[in-house]
Design a protein around this nucleic acid. Structure first.
Length: 219
DNA sequence: ACCCAGGGTCATA
DNA sequence: TATGACCATGGG
């Protein structure tokens, strides 16, 4: 069994399933992926609740709004002007698929990823979050915690680009889409738990405890 | 008052 | 290619 699978099993048994992504509908998950960019989930969740309160958390409703109208509704998520632009642009793109996630499912993952990445303010992580959590494609989502944790335990050097890190997981982590979902969620959980930006000395991360210290970067 | 949080983009060298 | 600046709210 590859070390990545061991780490996954260890995290899963330690924290339990995280049941990501929180969200009642595919559209809510998708918009949430944009709103959660570089902000605490609680801030993003407030913006989502506000959209819900205004009965706008449906593509056909929200597509009628201009970015300037969306922005004040999502203030709590931070960067609200950019995120309002991103949402408006996403809806303009989504219209070509009749606002139908059913139709999106017919599109191959690679093409979907390219189209999402072509949208403003949708970068690698946001695109992959939508692919994994909304559309249930077997795609690994790389975030800041992933790079930090796996660099700290020595499986990464810290100089890899997004696609390099993702390739490591795609090449070596054997799991279902569900496992890819859980792994990323568990990494975030573990990151918030013990792998803060400033290393807290003395608190040994359970991954290191799991795999030991003699690791060399794979890739 | 600082630091951080489930990033992305653009100008500059 | 690789940094730095900028976007911005809210909780600790």
């Amino acid at each position: 069994m590859h070390i990545l699978n061991k780490i996954y099993q260890q995290l899963l048994s330690h924290y339990g399933p995280q049941h990501w992504w929180p969200g009642e509908t595919q559209f809510e998950v998708t918009i949430g992926a944009i709103l959660a960019q570089n902000v605490s989930w609680t801030n993003a969740a407030k913006a989502i609740e506000n959209l819900k309160k205004h009965n706008l958390l449906q593509p056909q409703k929200l597509s009628g709004k201009k970015a300037e109208e969306i922005a004040p509704l999502i203030k709590s998520s931070g960067y609200y002007n950019q995120k309002a632009d991103a949402i408006a642009a996403f809806l303009r793109w989504f219209e070509r698929y009749d606002y139908s996630f059913e139709l999106l499912q017919k599109v191959p993952t690679e093409r979907l990823r390219e189209e999402l990445l072509a949208l403003p303010r949708i970068g690698h992580e946001t695109a992959d979050s939508i692919l994994l959590y909304t559309l249930e494609r077997r795609i690994f989502v790389v975030d800041a915690y992933t790079k930090r944790i796996f660099t700290r335990i020595g499986l990464l050097t810290g100089k890899e680009k997004y696609n390099d890190v993702q390739h490591m997981f795609h090449a070596h982590f054997a799991g279902t889409t569900r496992d890819y979902n859980e792994f990323h969620a568990l990494i975030v959980k573990h990151g918030k738990d013990v792998c803060a930006k400033k290393p807290r000395c003395g608190r040994c991360c359970i991954i290191r405890w799991c795999v030991g210290n003699a690791l060399t970067p794979i890739l």
